[in-house]
Amino acid sequence: MSCAIWDERVALFAGGDLETDEAAAVERHLIRCAACSALAAELRSGLDGLREAHAEPLAAEHYAAVRGRVLAELATPPRQRVVWTWAGAAGLAVAAAAAWVVFGVMRPAAMPVPELPRLVAVAPKVERPAPRERGSNRPFKSRKRIGWQANAPAPLGKVGKVGQTLSSVNRRVEPILTAAVEDSPVRMVQLATADPNVVIYWLFEEKGEER
């Protein structure tokens, strides 16, 4: 009967799996303990037997059989893949046809095409204010009243009347427009849509010579 507390260390020692100092401790114990020494001898013998058994080669035909099966398997898939590819394509076609039938039948009436926006007003071209003279006490008037040419079928280049009263809706964009006008000769076009709640403001800047 070996010492239970040494068993696992002896097992590792037999396979050469202990660090030097641990192996030295086990060796010292084995000198004193006949049971553990016998255990170590049995374990070593068993490990030698395992290695010898494992070293005996299998018959070549066993290896060849595996190789043959693998190569045969590799030779087979392309055909299967083609079959599966066609099957997949056919499945997709069926699914697409079903979707067309289902959603085609259930599709609501075609959405009405909205009317194109209609030009309703053109803001005048605003000139930059003259720079304030040095020493002048007159306050600088930065805000300019934006005029509109309502329902203007005229070309965009035509300037509307300055000072024309803005509608209540237009008043909300006036500060923004004014700020833009102060920095650059911006012009604005108001476009109405079929939906009375949607009004389009087109801000643009003219550059170059006026036509």
């Binding site: 068993d7 696992e8 260390r9 590792l12 799996d17 255990l39 049995e42 068993g46």
Partner: peptide, 17 residues
Amino acid sequence: VRSQISKARLKMRDFVE
């Protein structure tokens, strides 16, 4: 792994015995 190996060697030796 060391623990598995040591236990396994002892089990195998016990089996043979």
